[in-house]
Amino acid sequence: MHNGQTSIELIFPSILGYEVVARRVVATFADFVGFDQARIDDLKTAVGEACINAIEHGNQLQPDLPVYITSSYDGHRFAVDVSDTGTNPLAIIKEPKTIEEKLAGAASLRGMGMMLMAALADEFIVEPSAAPGNTVRLIWYQREVAHT
């Protein structure tokens, strides 16, 4: 039984590869509060994408710029905020190319992260941080298990 809101925070340098630690931290937290493995797999993929975006785009691969993660759970809603400290805004692609179009050379093979995060999370929000930088907010809701 989970009572009240609990949160954890993680700060790590903008070095590719460190997103693996962030994925593991958030996955262990989600497992601890009772999410099933399938949703944890979604969560790990989405958090990994958000971290790579923060490292590569927001913080421009500058190791001394930190990536901040705050993850919270209130018994129903599991939220993960991934914030960079850079000044390069994350581009929102309103009409993304399909995989077929990308493979045909109509667009870069990269740039699927935003689509992926939107597809994997129950809610996905990108907003400028209060401080310089961007915040990606990923939200999952605990689903009721159907008893038959």
Partner: peptide, 10 residues
């Protein structure tokens, strides 16, 4: 290279 983690006392 430093990583900081803050956890509740639970």
């Amino acid at each position: 290279k430093m990583i900081e983690l803050r956890l509740p006392s639970k």
